[in-house]
Design a protein around this nucleic acid. Sequence first.
DNA 1: CGTCGTCGTAAAATCGATTTCAATGGAAGT
DNA 2: ACTTCCATTGAAATCGATTTTACGACGACG
Lengths: 358, 358
Amino acid sequence: MASDTRKRFQDDPSRVRITDVAKLAGCAPATISRAINYPEKVSPERRARIENAMLELGYVRNHAARALRSQRSHMVGVLIPTLDYALYARLVGAANGKFSEAGISTLIATFDYDLDAELKEARLLLERGAEALILVGDRHRPKLYDLLDQYEVPFVNTYVYNAASAYPTVGFDNSAAAAKAAQHLVHLGHKNICVISGITKDNDRTTRRLEGIRAELLRHGIELPESMVAERPYSISNGRRACALLLSRGNPRPTAIICGNDVLALGALIECAAKGMEIPGDISVVGFDNLEYAAHSNPPLTTVDVPAEEMGADAAGYILGKLNGNEVATHVLVEVQLILRNSSAPPKWPGALADPNR
Amino acid sequence: MASDTRKRFQDDPSRVRITDVAKLAGCAPATISRAINYPEKVSPERRARIENAMLELGYVRNHAARALRSQRSHMVGVLIPTLDYALYARLVGAANGKFSEAGISTLIATFDYDLDAELKEARLLLERGAEALILVGDRHRPKLYDLLDQYEVPFVNTYVYNAASAYPTVGFDNSAAAAKAAQHLVHLGHKNICVISGITKDNDRTTRRLEGIRAELLRHGIELPESMVAERPYSISNGRRACALLLSRGNPRPTAIICGNDVLALGALIECAAKGMEIPGDISVVGFDNLEYAAHSNPPLTTVDVPAEEMGADAAGYILGKLNGNEVATHVLVEVQLILRNSSAPPKWPGALADPNR
DNA sequence: CGTCGTCGTAAAATCGATTTCAATGGAAGT
DNA sequence: ACTTCCATTGAAATCGATTTTACGACGACG
């Protein structure tokens, strides 16, 4: 029943240990360790000899032993909904870049927008030795917060900014950002507005954006009925279908669509064009995220720019600061900007403003 | 000079160790370990007691200790050029998904298309305890191969398929795939074809694709001059600019453009449209990768579908097999498909076929 | 000239879970 | 009734680098 006959990295008899290096360099293991970790504490000649020995043997430190003894894993965990969405991937990329510079490796985990899965993955990450965690959003299972508190693991919620929160945040005010988009349309004169939102279940970002839109419209005396909101997973096709649905539902037909992100917005753009509608003449469309192609769509998309890299880098900066025991700001605000392009304009028929009785 | 006063995860006096659980459950640490790792070897009643104790104390295993003693880190490294490109991100996502199911965590590292950086990151990954590596492409520094050989670390090159290679591959034949696109255009009647390629330096995939195109054209008696090839980093703007350049350079003007990927192709599409050219009437454009928006561009883009998730999952499958000591196929071929859409058609003026003398 | 401090190094303790080995008790078989 | 075997558990050894403690040599200073 030969099962695991393969030689493993560490099983390998040729695996070089610190004692082997010590023997070759003619000194004690402790000295090797010092030479690596505190080079200035070892005399230059000896250091040179040690370096040669390490090179010659191809020594690779055993991380497990190091982590066990020093109680530092030099790894942090990044826990995101999915890697399939460009902004999350870029956030991870940026954070990883900063960590890498600091000699820290990135453990990644995804939970596909399922908060229970998030909790499980977080536990695993911690077990694996993650010294800190980067999370997305601020809605997590209470048990996750408990766990983090219990072990005093530094962590930061990204994609949100909430100075009032007891937990650190790096991001922006989703409600206000979405409100900005809504306000833009209202200022242009739109009254009949519909929304294609991302799925709001278990997702504080989409939830707040929708709330922000609703509140802003209400502030201008416009009510957003449930029937004028469609929640869809992010995809161009979903954007198209939702757009078609909302257009058919609206009476009179909406003059503007606010989309939860650019993917949905692109779908809406395509659907409207396919229906022979003019954008922005017949209908205005605004997106969210400012993905690369938003600038190149037809027409170019008015959208809210979300600096994902900046959030990733700032989040990493926060974590690094915490790990080094530095004072760091608990809440970091990144700037989101409404990018005005040609997919939004005043409604062509102001007559549409006066909606009958409904 | 208070420097590092913060309590760390493991420093925490409240940190629960296996002995604490053992005490509470009234048994030896060894039994706890068994209850976790070989539940069937512990009597049900005791197991229940132990589980309660663990829950009550909030026990989290110390991975470093476990890894040190068992010589298994339960982590694998994924080393990709960048997370900014959707296909790589999706590949990682898919691989991570499979690993996660198998109780394995994913360490991620990027090298931004710099092979020296790749070597360094690989070393780091190994040092951190990665039991195996997923790589992209088969062009790596010889030292990287040496390292992998020396320690017999399982690894797999993705995005390439080469049954003749001594090293495992999961992917497809880049040369043949790109040739397919070229052939498609030739069959449509195009003779005057130009190429917007990704950067080929240090990149076997782009290099082979370009070679494949060149060879295929030559096979049909068409030579591809250097001046009709532009190498650019992937971005829509670069696609636009390169397209403008090649169009101005070609004499007569090219009737088709092959792009290294869909991002460049989208740029080309936009540039051509901006110039008032009809697609595919005046010019055909084909892309590579089949990103989501390729199906929704105007016109929809003819492109080569690359199943990134499948490669990620297959690569993970290979690694898992290796780690478990199973027999696994050394080379896995994934299917790439030329997706015919509306950005390619026969050239409008067959007259353009006969090119003067040049 | 002796003592103290410093520097560089070595020896040994340590981190915490796993694994090996041994011991116990009870069931099954002779 | 006695041996054998199996299942369950505990005690102790172990993984390999880091960290603590100790020590010898050397220079400075009183």
